[in-house]
Amino acid sequence: MATKTPTPNPRPADDTSLLQPHGWLQKILVWIVSEATPKCRDVVRILSEQMDHELPLITRWKLRLHFVACCWCERYMRQLHYLRETARHFPQHIGEVQGPALSPEARLRLKRVLNNP
């Protein structure tokens, strides 16, 4: 039976994962982590759900374990919080965004309506 060859997936220089597959022991540990935790494609979905409701304890522990060998998912989680933190300030900064103004007609209409509500 032919065994499936894993897709080549080199780790770039900015890989800051705590556990990296450099020696045989680390390779085994990374393999255990990848088998015991969801795959990255599912982790990002779960991380988004975590922004909206509390996850079961076991899922939260699996995520923590996953982060040990995957700095990308851990970064993704921090970036979801970054998005939340900045997005909620967006309305206050709308004056710094280019965009159309009220048309002179709309401005006149508004003033007329406010004078005769």
């Binding site: 894993p6 897709t7 997936n9 080199p10 780790r11 770039p12 900015d14 890989d15 990848s34 795959k39 990255c40 494609r41 599912d42 995957c70 700095c71 990308w72 998912c73 970064r75 993704y76 921090r78 970036q79 970054y82």
Partner: peptide, 16 residues
């Protein structure tokens, strides 16, 4: 993502 479900590491999230 690669077919196995992991990030394509070189395309994974960068530090912000």
């Amino acid at each position: 993502f690669v077919p196995e479900g992991y990030w394509v590491h070189v395309k994974g999230p960068k530090e912000w």
